[in-house]
Design a protein around this nucleic acid. Structure first.
Lengths: 162, 162
DNA sequence: CCGACCGCTTGCATACAGCAAGCACAATTG
DNA sequence: CAATTGTGCTTGCTGTATGCAAGCGGTCGG
C-alpha cells in the first residue's frame, strides 16, 4: 500500500498497490459477485470486511484508478462502483491466484468451482470474461457469451449439490 | 497473513498466505535473484527490507511450506533457503503480476525487462523456468535451457545500456 | 586473540487493522 | 407529516504489524 515505495520493479509496484489483505477481495467481489455498492460489498461479504476498511479501500482503489464511482439514479445516496480497464486486466492475475490457492491451500469445494472453470478455460475464457466485464462496467457492447452466468451457475450447482 | 481467515475461497486463502507487502518480495528475490541466505536477501534488497521483517517472513514462509532451510556446509552459521514445489508454482502468478505492473504502473525500464521476457515467453517459458528452479532448489536434474541466465543476461544488458 | 561477519533479536515509535457505535441524509411506510 | 428503515460512510478505541536503530552470541580469517 502507499508506503514509501522503493524500487521500480513491476512486481514490487503491483504489490504496493494491491499487496494487502483487502484490496483484491473488494475487486474480486465487484468482479465475480457483481456487487456494485457499498452496502452490497459490506453485507454480502464472505470474509466479513469491516465497514471502515471497506470505505478506505473504496477510496484508495478509486483514487488509484482501479474503480470508478457514480451516482445511482434509483437512490440519491447510493454510489455505483465500476471496474476500470486496469482492474479488468487483473482477471489473469486473479485466475492464477485461484489456481494456486486451489492446489496449495484447503479451499471449500463450492468456492473452488469458479477457480476451476477459470483454470480449465485458460486465456480464451479469461478474454471472454474480460469482454463481458467491459460490457457490465464500461458500457461496451454485450458479448454473446456470458462467462459470468456460467461461473455463477456452476457455483450455484455446487452449493445445491452440497 | 495469519489473521482469522474467513472464507474458503481460493483467492482469499492465497491472499491470507501471501497478501502482504513483503512475502512475495522475498520469494521473488530467491526465485529471480537466486538469493539464498539471510544476508544476501537483506543486503542486496532493492526494496530495503528491515531485518526483523525479513527474519519474520523467512520464519513464516518456512512454516507454511513455501521455503525450506538447511545448513550451509561452508559456514556453520549460514542457512540456505530454497524454494519448494509450492513456491515454484508461483511463477505464473509472479509473471502475471509483472505483466500487470508493467502496463498499469510506472516501472523502471531495466527492472521491466524480466517481466517483459516472461510475458512474451508465456506458459512454455514459465514451464522451462520452473524446471530450472526445480534443479536449483529441489535437486532435480539440470535442464538444457537456462531461463534464469537468459533473464539475468537481458537484465544486465538493460542496465549496461542505460 | 582480535576484528569483521553472520543470522538473527530487542526496544521503541508510528501506522495500519478490527470492532462497535454513531451520524447525516434519503426513501419508505403508516 | 412523523416515524422507521436504508444507505454510505465516520469516529473512538484497542490491538497488532511495520520500520528503524541498536545489540548479541556464535563463527571465521588472519
Amino acid at each position: 500500500m502507499p508506503q514509501t515505495g522503493r524500487s521500480g520493479c513491476p512486481i514490487n509496484l503491483t504489490l504496493e498497490q494491491l499487496g494487502d489483505r483487502w484490496s483484491l477481495i473488494v475487486i474480486r467481489d465487484v468482479m465475480f459477485g457483481n456487487r456494485r455498492t457499498y452496502g452490497e460489498l459490506l453485507a454480502q461479504s464472505e470474509e466479513g470486511i469491516a465497514s471502515n476498511i471497506l470505505a478506505d479501500r473504496l477510496k484508495r482503489l478509486t483514487a488509484s484508478g482501479l474503480l470508478t464511482r457514480r451516482a445511482d439514479p434509483s437512490h440519491r445516496q447510493k454510489r455505483i462502483y465500476s471496474l476500470t480497464e486496469a482492474s479488468i486486466q487483473l482477471v489473469p492475475l486473479l485466475a492464477q491466484m485461484g489456481t494456486w490457492g486451489r492446489r496449495h491451500t484447503r479451499p471449500s469445494k463450492e468456492l473452488s468451482v469458479r477457480a476451476e472453470l477459470l483454470e480449465k478455460g485458460g486465456a480464451p475464457l479469461w478474454s471472454a470474461f474480460m469482454d463481458e466485464l467491459r460490457h457490465l462496467h464500461l458500457n461496451a457492447r454485450q458479448p454473446v457469451r456470458s462467462v459470468f452466468r456460467e461461473l455463477q451457475a456452476a457455483y450455484e450447482r455446487a452449493v445445491a449439490r452440497r
